[in-house]
């Protein structure tokens, strides 16, 4: 693989978002990135393009325009039916070589984090992982890519000065969803894919969908989350009742998962799921940094903890210092009363 020469400047142009379409659904982060990509493209005065690689993707194209793509590149081929690194990396890097975008973005999902390093290696360019903030330097016009590292203890701004494209994966549910304008039109570019099945050395034998509970976690609007403060599995019922009243989803800290109270799929945090619900209720969770990085961007945080020094209280909109065994049932009872009567005020 040859080293890409230093970019000349005007050759590489445009902001691209790789739209993740898999098992019949688009990862919402793809649309979030079109929203963010719009801002970057405006700063650079260039176009914003969506890229769809997959099989039978036609239904996704109007959506890609509706969420803001000016152009949409499509590779539709049977070998792209199930996600595999090899064909996807080849399809994406083929498009990148041909059309030379300046910036390409993808969600920091298991797919984005799998395929982008392969594409970056093929292109011999830099890749910034798991960004939470993007911007354009007004002077150099470089993409400023800010990401947490060291388990969320530090933030770093990364630049890719002299190679192109500039590539980043971006954490889901950090950027805002853009407005969807139904019926918006743009230019559609379909590309052939010349590879076939025998070129690839991996086969997907089976796909087992995640159970509904965990599949919902990163999209849940209300999360009731428990930690070791709960003391025993049988006390989980306190949180379940609160979740039930609120129509919320149950989750927890790694402490709660390691204690065997919840499944790994229900873990919030650095080594679990990143969530951004409207309301996050933390019950008996201390708020270790690895937990905070997974839930800090929630719209509203309520924490219940009997230790006034617990770090979770510092990120909470409402921090209730007290015994969860008293507070939680009281909250449940009060919500039940108020919500059942349907009186909000």
């Amino acid at each position: 693989s040859q080293v890409k020469p230093v970019a000349g400047g005007d050759v590489w142009s445009g902001v691209w978002v790789i739209i993740e379409y898999n098992n019949g659904r688009v990862a919402p982060v793809s649309w979030e990135l079109l929203g963010e990509g719009r801002k970057l493209a405006n700063s650079l005065g260039c176009e914003l393009c969506g890229v769809i690689t997959g099989y039978q993707v036609d239904s996704v194209i109007p959506e890609a325009f509706a969420f803001g793509s000016e152009k949409v590149y499509v590779i539709d081929h049977e070998v792209l039916k199930d996600y595999r690194t090899e064909p996807y990396a080849e399809a994406i890097s083929g498009l990148v070589r041909k059309y030379q975008p300046e910036i390409i973005l993808m969600g920091a999902t298991s797919m984005g984090r799998d395929v982008f390093p392969a594409v970056a290696t093929k292109m011999q360019t830099g890749l910034t992982a798991d960004c939470t903030v993007l911007g354009i330097d007004p002077e150099t016009k470089l993409l400023q890519q800010t990401r947490p590292a060291f388990g969320g203890n530090i933030m770093a701004t990364i630049l890719c000065r002299s190679r192109r494209p500039q590539m980043a994966t971006v954490r889901p549910r950090v950027m805002e969803m853009p407005e969807k304008v139904e019926g918006r039109q743009g230019e559609l570019i379909r590309e052939e894919f010349t590879s076939n099945e025998s070129d690839f050395r991996t086969k997907v034998l089976e796909f087992i969908p995640a159970d509904a509970r965990s599949a919902f976690l990163d999209k849940a609007e209300i999360i009731v989350s428990v930690g070791l403060g709960l003391a025993a599995k049988r006390n989980l019922v306190l949180a379940e009742e609160l979740a039930e009243v609120l129509g919320g989803t149950l989750a927890g800290s790694r402490g709660a998962v390691e204690a065997g109270w919840l499944s790994h799929d229900q873990q919030v945090g650095q080594s679990g799921v990143t969530v951004r619900p409207k309301v996050y209720i933390a019950i008996g969770i201390s708020g270790a940094i690895q937990h905070l990085v997974g839930m800090e961007t929630s719209d509203f945080i309520i924490a219940i903890n009997n230790d006034p020094e617990a770090p979770i209280l510092k990120v909470a909109n409402y921090g209730i210092v007290g015994d969860l065994f008293q507070i939680v049932p009281a909250l449940t009872a009060e919500f039940k009363k108020r919500l059942q009567h349907g009186v909000a005020n």
């Binding site: 011999q124 360019t125 830099g126 890749l127 910034t128 400023q144 947490p148 969320g152 203890n153 530090i154 933030m155 770093a156 701004t157 990364i158 630049l159 890719c160 000065r161 002299s162 190679r163 990085v293 800090e296 945080i301 219940i304 009997n306 006034p308 209280l313 510092k314 990120v315 909470a316 909109n317 409402y318 921090g319 209730i320 210092v321 007290g322 015994d323 008293q326 507070i327």
Partner: peptide, 23 residues
């Protein structure tokens, strides 16, 4: 290395909200 760290800083803390005594 194509990427370089141009700046590191502490994560922006979420400004604390209201603390209530529930004891």
């Amino acid at each position: 290395s194509p990427t370089s760290v141009s700046r590191i800083f502490a994560p922006p803390g979420r400004s604390g909200g209201e603390i209530m005594d529930g004891t």
